[in-house]
Protein backbone atom coordinates (compact mmCIF):
# COMPACT_ATOMS: atom_id res chain seq x y z
CA UNK A 1 0.00 0.00 0.00
CA UNK A 2 2.75 2.45 0.85
CA UNK A 3 4.10 2.24 -2.69
CA UNK A 4 1.05 2.67 -4.86
CA UNK A 5 -0.76 5.27 -2.79
CA UNK A 6 1.75 8.14 -3.29
CA UNK A 7 2.10 7.24 -6.94
CA UNK A 8 -1.62 7.26 -7.58
CA UNK A 9 -1.87 10.57 -5.79
CA UNK A 10 0.89 12.17 -7.85
CA UNK A 11 -0.67 10.89 -11.07
CA UNK A 12 -4.08 12.20 -10.09
CA UNK A 13 -2.81 15.73 -9.38
CA UNK A 14 -0.89 15.82 -12.66
CA UNK A 15 -4.00 14.71 -14.52
CA UNK A 16 -5.98 17.53 -12.92
CA UNK A 17 -3.27 20.04 -13.82
CA UNK A 18 -3.15 19.02 -17.45
CA UNK A 19 -6.79 18.10 -18.12
CA UNK A 20 -8.01 21.64 -18.88
CA UNK A 21 -5.05 22.22 -21.20
CA UNK A 22 -5.79 18.97 -23.05
CA UNK A 23 -9.46 19.88 -23.37
CA UNK A 24 -8.56 23.28 -24.79
CA UNK A 25 -6.22 21.78 -27.37
CA UNK A 26 -8.73 19.13 -28.46
CA UNK A 27 -11.58 21.62 -28.68
CA UNK A 28 -9.52 23.99 -30.81
CA UNK A 29 -9.90 21.42 -33.60
CA UNK A 30 -13.62 21.03 -33.00
CA UNK A 31 -15.85 21.89 -35.94
CA UNK A 32 -18.91 22.57 -33.77
CA UNK A 33 -19.77 26.22 -33.18
CA UNK A 34 -21.30 25.78 -29.75
CA UNK A 35 -18.01 24.47 -28.46
CA UNK A 36 -19.42 21.83 -26.13
CA UNK A 37 -20.17 18.80 -28.24
CA UNK A 38 -17.80 17.24 -30.70
CA UNK A 39 -18.57 18.13 -34.30
CA UNK A 40 -15.65 16.55 -36.10
CA UNK A 41 -12.09 17.61 -36.85
CA UNK A 42 -11.55 21.02 -38.37
CA UNK A 43 -9.00 23.78 -38.90
CA UNK A 44 -11.63 26.48 -39.28
CA UNK A 45 -10.88 28.35 -36.04
CA UNK A 46 -7.21 28.60 -36.94
CA UNK A 47 -8.19 29.86 -40.37
CA UNK A 48 -10.57 32.46 -39.04
CA UNK A 49 -7.84 33.52 -36.62
CA UNK A 50 -5.34 34.21 -39.36
CA UNK A 51 -7.94 35.87 -41.54
CA UNK A 52 -8.63 38.38 -38.80
CA UNK A 53 -6.39 41.35 -39.53
CA UNK A 54 -6.58 42.97 -36.10
CA UNK A 55 -5.74 39.61 -34.55
CA UNK A 56 -2.69 39.09 -36.74
CA UNK A 57 -1.51 42.59 -35.96
CA UNK A 58 -1.88 41.98 -32.22
CA UNK A 59 0.11 38.79 -32.68
CA UNK A 60 2.98 40.63 -34.35
CA UNK A 61 2.85 43.36 -31.72
CA UNK A 62 3.09 40.77 -28.97
CA UNK A 63 5.97 38.95 -30.60
CA UNK A 64 7.89 42.16 -31.21
CA UNK A 65 7.30 43.32 -27.64
CA UNK A 66 8.41 39.96 -26.19
CA UNK A 67 11.46 39.91 -28.43
CA UNK A 68 12.63 43.38 -27.46
CA UNK A 69 11.74 43.02 -23.76
CA UNK A 70 13.59 39.69 -23.52
CA UNK A 71 16.66 41.09 -25.27
CA UNK A 72 16.94 44.22 -23.16
CA UNK A 73 16.23 42.42 -19.88
CA UNK A 74 18.83 39.76 -20.71
CA UNK A 75 21.38 42.47 -21.42
CA UNK A 76 20.75 44.44 -18.24
CA UNK A 77 20.11 41.32 -16.17
CA UNK A 78 23.37 39.68 -17.22
CA UNK A 79 25.36 42.82 -16.43
CA UNK A 80 23.63 43.05 -13.05
CA UNK A 81 24.42 39.44 -12.25
CA UNK A 82 28.06 39.95 -13.22
CA UNK A 83 28.30 43.04 -11.04
CA UNK A 84 26.67 41.27 -8.09
CA UNK A 85 28.94 38.30 -8.52
CA UNK A 86 32.26 40.06 -9.10
CA UNK A 87 32.23 43.40 -7.38
CA UNK A 88 31.99 44.64 -3.89
CA UNK A 89 30.12 47.90 -3.74
CA UNK A 90 28.03 49.96 -1.40
CA UNK A 91 24.35 49.17 -1.57
CA UNK A 92 24.80 45.65 -2.86
CA UNK A 93 22.31 44.36 -0.33
CA UNK A 94 19.83 47.05 -1.31
CA UNK A 95 20.18 46.08 -4.97
CA UNK A 96 19.57 42.44 -4.17
CA UNK A 97 16.64 43.39 -1.98
CA UNK A 98 15.04 45.52 -4.68
CA UNK A 99 15.23 42.71 -7.23
CA UNK A 100 13.71 40.37 -4.66
CA UNK A 101 10.87 42.80 -4.00
CA UNK A 102 10.12 43.08 -7.73
CA UNK A 103 9.89 39.30 -7.96
CA UNK A 104 7.80 38.82 -4.84
CA UNK A 105 5.38 41.71 -4.90
CA UNK A 106 1.97 41.04 -6.43
CA UNK A 107 1.95 41.99 -10.10
CA UNK A 108 -0.88 44.41 -9.59
CA UNK A 109 1.22 46.47 -7.19
CA UNK A 110 3.96 46.79 -9.79
CA UNK A 111 1.34 47.57 -12.43
CA UNK A 112 -0.25 50.54 -10.69
CA UNK A 113 3.09 51.96 -9.58
CA UNK A 114 4.33 51.95 -13.17
CA UNK A 115 1.09 53.47 -14.42
CA UNK A 116 1.51 56.27 -11.88
CA UNK A 117 5.09 56.87 -13.05
CA UNK A 118 4.24 56.90 -16.75
CA UNK A 119 1.39 59.35 -16.28
CA UNK A 120 3.56 61.57 -14.08
CA UNK A 121 6.36 61.87 -16.64
CA UNK A 122 3.82 62.21 -19.43
CA UNK A 123 4.80 59.09 -21.33
CA UNK A 124 2.13 58.07 -23.82
CA UNK A 125 0.90 54.56 -23.03
CA UNK A 126 1.86 52.20 -25.83
CA UNK A 127 4.88 50.26 -26.98
CA UNK A 128 7.47 52.16 -24.91
CA UNK A 129 5.55 51.94 -21.65
CA UNK A 130 4.88 48.23 -22.21
CA UNK A 131 8.54 47.65 -22.97
CA UNK A 132 9.79 49.44 -19.85
CA UNK A 133 7.31 47.53 -17.68
CA UNK A 134 8.06 44.13 -19.19
CA UNK A 135 11.82 44.58 -18.92
CA UNK A 136 11.35 45.47 -15.26
CA UNK A 137 9.44 42.33 -14.31
CA UNK A 138 11.66 40.04 -16.42
CA UNK A 139 14.86 41.43 -14.92
CA UNK A 140 14.98 39.47 -11.62
CA UNK A 141 14.41 36.17 -13.44
CA UNK A 142 17.36 36.78 -15.75
CA UNK A 143 19.56 37.86 -12.84
CA UNK A 144 18.74 34.68 -10.91
CA UNK A 145 19.37 32.42 -13.89
CA UNK A 146 22.76 34.00 -14.63
CA UNK A 147 23.77 34.15 -10.95
CA UNK A 148 23.06 30.42 -10.60
CA UNK A 149 25.39 29.74 -13.50
CA UNK A 150 28.12 32.02 -12.14
CA UNK A 151 28.05 30.52 -8.66
CA UNK A 152 29.13 27.14 -10.00
CA UNK A 153 32.11 28.49 -11.88
CA UNK A 154 35.85 28.33 -11.23
CA UNK A 155 36.98 31.67 -9.78
CA UNK A 156 40.56 31.11 -10.90
CA UNK A 157 39.71 31.62 -14.58
CA UNK A 158 39.01 35.36 -14.40
CA UNK A 159 41.94 35.77 -12.00
CA UNK A 160 44.22 34.07 -14.51
CA UNK A 161 42.94 36.32 -17.30
CA UNK A 162 43.61 39.37 -15.16
CA UNK A 163 47.11 38.15 -14.30
CA UNK A 164 47.80 37.78 -17.98
CA UNK A 165 47.05 41.46 -18.37
CA UNK A 166 43.45 41.45 -19.57
CA UNK A 167 41.34 44.45 -18.62
CA UNK A 168 38.00 43.95 -16.89
CA UNK A 169 36.19 44.46 -20.14
CA UNK A 170 38.39 42.04 -22.11
CA UNK A 171 38.15 39.44 -19.35
CA UNK A 172 34.36 39.72 -19.31
CA UNK A 173 34.19 39.38 -23.07
CA UNK A 174 36.60 36.47 -23.47
CA UNK A 175 36.11 34.49 -20.25
CA UNK A 176 32.85 35.27 -18.49
CA UNK A 177 30.47 35.66 -21.41
CA UNK A 178 31.26 32.26 -22.95
CA UNK A 179 30.73 30.70 -19.52
CA UNK A 180 27.35 32.31 -18.93
CA UNK A 181 26.14 31.89 -22.52
CA UNK A 182 23.71 29.03 -21.75
CA UNK A 183 22.24 31.03 -18.86
CA UNK A 184 21.85 34.02 -21.17
CA UNK A 185 19.92 31.96 -23.68
CA UNK A 186 17.77 30.37 -20.97
CA UNK A 187 17.14 33.77 -19.39
CA UNK A 188 16.20 35.24 -22.75
CA UNK A 189 13.70 32.45 -23.42
CA UNK A 190 12.16 32.83 -19.96
CA UNK A 191 11.88 36.58 -20.42
CA UNK A 192 10.24 36.02 -23.79
CA UNK A 193 7.55 33.73 -22.37
CA UNK A 194 6.97 35.96 -19.33
CA UNK A 195 6.42 38.94 -21.57
CA UNK A 196 4.23 37.05 -24.03
CA UNK A 197 1.97 35.76 -21.24
CA UNK A 198 1.61 38.82 -19.08
CA UNK A 199 -1.91 40.10 -18.55
CA UNK A 200 -1.93 41.95 -15.24
CA UNK A 201 0.80 44.53 -15.85
CA UNK A 202 -0.11 45.03 -19.51
CA UNK A 203 -3.73 45.78 -18.63
CA UNK A 204 -2.54 48.90 -16.84
CA UNK A 205 0.31 50.20 -19.00
CA UNK A 206 -0.93 49.61 -22.53
CA UNK A 207 -2.77 52.09 -24.65
CA UNK A 208 -5.06 51.87 -27.67
CA UNK A 209 -2.16 52.55 -30.04
CA UNK A 210 -0.52 49.19 -29.39
CA UNK A 211 -2.81 46.21 -28.97
CA UNK A 212 -1.24 42.99 -27.75
CA UNK A 213 -2.50 39.42 -27.78
CA UNK A 214 -3.17 38.66 -24.09
CA UNK A 215 -5.31 41.77 -23.76
CA UNK A 216 -7.25 40.88 -26.89
CA UNK A 217 -7.89 37.43 -25.46
CA UNK A 218 -8.90 39.01 -22.18
CA UNK A 219 -11.56 41.15 -23.81
CA UNK A 220 -12.79 38.13 -25.80
CA UNK A 221 -13.11 35.67 -22.91
CA UNK A 222 -14.88 38.06 -20.58
CA UNK A 223 -17.99 37.89 -22.71
CA UNK A 224 -18.24 34.12 -23.01
CA UNK A 225 -16.86 31.08 -24.75
CA UNK A 226 -15.48 31.67 -28.22
CA UNK A 227 -14.07 28.89 -30.38
CA UNK A 228 -11.40 31.20 -31.84
CA UNK A 229 -10.00 31.60 -28.35
CA UNK A 230 -9.44 27.84 -28.17
CA UNK A 231 -7.25 28.00 -31.26
CA UNK A 232 -5.42 31.11 -30.12
CA UNK A 233 -4.92 29.72 -26.61
CA UNK A 234 -3.59 26.47 -28.02
CA UNK A 235 -1.07 28.34 -30.17
CA UNK A 236 0.09 30.44 -27.22
CA UNK A 237 0.39 27.45 -24.87
CA UNK A 238 2.33 25.39 -27.38
CA UNK A 239 4.61 28.32 -28.14
CA UNK A 240 5.44 28.90 -24.47
CA UNK A 241 5.98 25.20 -23.86
CA UNK A 242 8.45 24.92 -26.73
CA UNK A 243 10.34 27.97 -25.47
CA UNK A 244 10.45 26.57 -21.95
CA UNK A 245 11.58 23.12 -23.04
CA UNK A 246 14.30 24.74 -25.12
CA UNK A 247 15.56 26.87 -22.24
CA UNK A 248 15.66 23.91 -19.84
CA UNK A 249 17.34 21.74 -22.45
CA UNK A 250 20.06 24.35 -22.95
CA UNK A 251 20.63 24.62 -19.21
CA UNK A 252 20.81 20.87 -18.53
CA UNK A 253 22.99 20.20 -21.52
CA UNK A 254 25.49 22.86 -20.53
CA UNK A 255 25.81 21.32 -17.05
CA UNK A 256 27.08 18.04 -18.43
Amino acid sequence: MTRWLPRTYLTLVYLLLYAPIAVLVVFSFNDSRTGYEWGGLSWRWYESLFNNRAMVEAMWNSLWLALSAATISTLIGALTALALHRYRFRGKKALNGMLFVVMMSPEIVLAISLLALFLLVGLQLGYVSLLLAHVTFCLPFVVITVMARLSGFDERLPEAARDLGASDFTMTRTVLIPVIMPALLAGWLLGFTLSLDDVVVSTFVSGPSYEILPLRIYSMVRVGLKPEVNALGTLLLMFSMVMLIMSQWILTRSKQ
Partner: peptide, 20 residues
Protein backbone atom coordinates in the same frame (compact mmCIF):
# COMPACT_ATOMS: atom_id res chain seq x y z
CA UNK B 1 6.03 19.01 -15.56
CA UNK B 2 4.92 20.99 -12.52
CA UNK B 3 6.48 24.28 -13.63
CA UNK B 4 5.48 24.05 -17.30
CA UNK B 5 1.98 25.38 -16.61
CA UNK B 6 3.48 28.16 -14.49
CA UNK B 7 5.29 29.53 -17.53
CA UNK B 8 2.30 29.30 -19.85
CA UNK B 9 -0.43 31.85 -20.17
CA UNK B 10 -2.50 31.88 -16.98
CA UNK B 11 -5.35 33.69 -18.69
CA UNK B 12 -5.63 30.96 -21.30
CA UNK B 13 -5.55 28.30 -18.59
CA UNK B 14 -8.30 30.07 -16.66
CA UNK B 15 -10.35 30.09 -19.81
CA UNK B 16 -9.64 26.39 -20.33
CA UNK B 17 -11.01 25.78 -16.85
CA UNK B 18 -14.15 27.64 -17.85
CA UNK B 19 -14.58 25.21 -20.74
CA UNK B 20 -14.62 22.38 -18.23
Amino acid sequence: LLIVPFWTNSLVRTYALKLM
